[in-house]
Design a protein around this nucleic acid. Structure first.
Lengths: 126, 126
DNA sequence: ACATCATTGTTAGGTGGCTAACAATACCAG
DNA sequence: CTGGTATTGTTAGCCACCTAACAATGATGT
């Protein structure tokens, strides 16, 4: 994915942000947090990069000045339209694999992730 | 894993290097490369960090001065012996999960990884 | 013997992840 | 209305990953 995006000077996370904005329209930065499953600080830096490149803009909400709305700029839309279709990555990785196996893999990984997250939370509180 | 190691000022990759040296004895840096599945440059930095901390030493091979042998120092062994057992992580994540599911997950991930690696290599050569 | 190629390691520069500490704003309780 | 708390975003500093370019050494072929 990063190899495919390198010619456009985008990283994978930057792509995900653009993807969200392209598909769901303007979005609050705090909502992106949940969508991308990333820490506040991390997103802040990625957003900063995209703003610096002029691909998105960040406007404080009228009523709650803490929250910031993210929106693609004209240049952002232009770039987005030029980007290649990345679905070949998913196809290359998973096409033709037994779908029961894939379901099992998802189960295993989801379960392990949840358990480790619970474990961490416990440790943090105690 | 990183949370467990933080009190000892170690990252996960640093731990893996120590683990290798503790279990297999002194090792050529280039062999570690394959073992850790990491790029040359990445390992170089990690090794540099461990050397700076005085936990391992790096000595050029007598006959081939390009290659460097990594070996734990006395301080490295002392620290290694103090580190907690990390097997609770694997247990927390996977204990009790259907072993057929786990096997399937491994199959899926290994296959996908190989396919993507092949794909990348193709693109690089062509 | 020497020029060329291959291998090994390092450095520089970039991405993306994290935590900790801080600033600004909003909310709420007395 | 004011003081404490919660939310949101930023900054700084770290780890780990990558590629590209370079330096040093060793191997090879003419």
């Amino acid at each position: 994915m990063e190899a495919a995006l390198r010619p456009y000077d985008l990283g994978a996370t930057q792509w995900y942000v653009l993807h969200r904005l392209a598909h769901d329209g303007p979005t609050m930065q705090r909502d992106l947090l949940r969508a991308l499953q990333v820490e506040r600080a991390t997103l802040s830096v990625v957003v900063g990069t995209l703003v610096r490149k002029g691909l998105i803009e960040q406007v404080p909400d009228r009523v709650d000045q803490r929250q910031k709305l993210l929106r693609m700029t004209r240049a952002g839309v232009r770039l987005w339209d030029k980007l290649p279709d990345l679905s070949f990555i998913h196809k290359t990785a998973f096409d033709g694999i037994d779908s029961a196996d894939i379901a099992a893999a998802i189960r295993v990984l989801r379960t392990a992730t949840e358990r480790l997250e619970n474990y961490s939370r416990q440790g943090a509180d105690t």
